[in-house]
Write a protein that binds this DNA or RNA. Structure first.
Lengths: 155, 155
DNA sequence: GGTATTGGTCAACCACGTTGACGAGTTTAC
DNA sequence: GTAAACTCGTCAACGTGGTTGACCAATACC
C-alpha cells in the first residue's frame, strides 16, 4: 500500500496543472472567438454577477474578496464593455451591475467551451474516469459551491 | 452517457478547490510549525532552487517567469531568511542562490505535510481512488514535470 | 580582439489584492 | 420621529507578483 506511491507534493501539482490547462485552453479559445481581453479573474467575476446582476458588495462576498477589490474588477470589466452600472431604484446607495450583451456572450461561450473541454477529457480517459475524478474531488473538497473563495489566487 | 453529467465548468472548479484546499492546509500547518510568512509562490520558488542552489535566471526559467520577477522573489525570500546569495567563483556574473538551513527546513516540512495530506485523502477516498485521480490527471495534463509554468498564478 | 550572448539590476508600469476612512442612504430601536 | 447603527460605494495608500525596456559587466564565440 505504501510501496510505489508518488510523493505527496505531486497531487497538488497535478490538480493545479489540470486546472491550469483547462483555463488556458478556455482563454485561448475565447480569444479566438472575439474575447481576447478576458482574464481568468474576469470570468469568475462575470459568473458571480450572473444574468440577474448583482451589487459590488455582493460580488465581493461571492468571490471572497473585499468590496473594494470587487469594485476595481467591475471597473475593468466595465472598461472592457462586459458590464454596466445602473442605479438601483429601490436603494440609492446600491449600484446594480449588469452584464452587457457582450458579457452574456462571453459567459455563454465559456460554458460551451468548458463542456467541449470536458468532452475531450471523456474522449481521452473514458466517461467513468472523469466522473470518478469529479466525485472524488467533490468528496474531498470542503463544500465548494459556486461562491468559491478565491482571494489572491487569480493573477 | 450524456444524461446526468455535470456542466463542464464544474471540473475546473473542483480541480482548483482541491488544489486550493491542499495548499491552504499546507500553509496553515507551516504557520504552526514556525513558518508563518511563507506564501505559495515562495514554496514554488524554493522548490525551483532546490538543495543544490540555482541562479536567478535559472529560477525564472524553471518557474516560467522573467529573470526580473525571479530576482524580486529571491529578494523577498532572502529578507525572510530562506535563501542567501553567494558569488559564483566560476562565473563572476552569476550569483548562486542557496537555501539557508531555514529554507531547507521549510522544504522538508512541506514534503512531510504534503505526504500526510495525501494520506488523509487516501483515508477518505481509499488508496485506489487517489491513485486513479493522479493517473487520470497525469494522462490528461500536457507534460508537467516540476518546471511547472506558473506565471501570474500565485498571488 | 571584436562581437554576440548571458546574468543581474534599475526603473516604470500594470493587475489584483489589502486596510482604513468617509459621505450618503437605509434600517433599527426607542 | 429622530438618533444610532449599519451598509454601499468610493478614495487613498500600500503590498506583492508580474511585465518591458535599458543598461553594464562578464563570459563565450569565431
Amino acid at each position: 500500500m505504501t510501496e510505489a506511491d508518488p510523493p505527496g507534493f505531486e497531487l497538488p501539482l497535478l490538480l493545479f496543472a489540470g486546472f491550469r490547462s483547462l483555463i488556458d485552453e478556455l482563454h485561448a479559445e475565447l480569444a479566438q472567438q472575439g474575447h481576447p481581453d478576458v482574464r481568468p479573474v474576469h470570468g469568475f467575476a462575470l459568473q458571480a454577477i450572473g444574468p440577474r446582476g448583482a451589487s459590488a458588495s455582493e460580488i465581493g462576498r461571492r468571490l471572497g474578496v473585499s468590496k473594494q477589490a470587487a469594485g476595481k474588477t467591475v471597473d475593468r470589466l466595465a472598461a472592457l464593455g462586459y458590464v454596466e452600472r445602473a442605479d438601483d431604484p429601490a436603494d440609492a446607495r446600491r449600484k446594480l451591475i449588469r452584464l452587457t450583451p457582450r458579457g452574456l456572450d462571453v459567459l455563454t461561450r465559456s460554458a460551451e467551451i468548458f463542456d467541449s473541454l470536458r468532452a475531450r477529457w471523456v474522449a481521452t480517459l473514458g466517461h467513468e474516469r472523469v466522473v470518478q475524478v469529479e466525485s472524488s474531488l467533490r468528496t474531498v473538497v470542503p463544500a465548494a459551491g459556486f461562491p468559491v473563495d478565491v482571494p489572491g489566487w487569480f493573477g
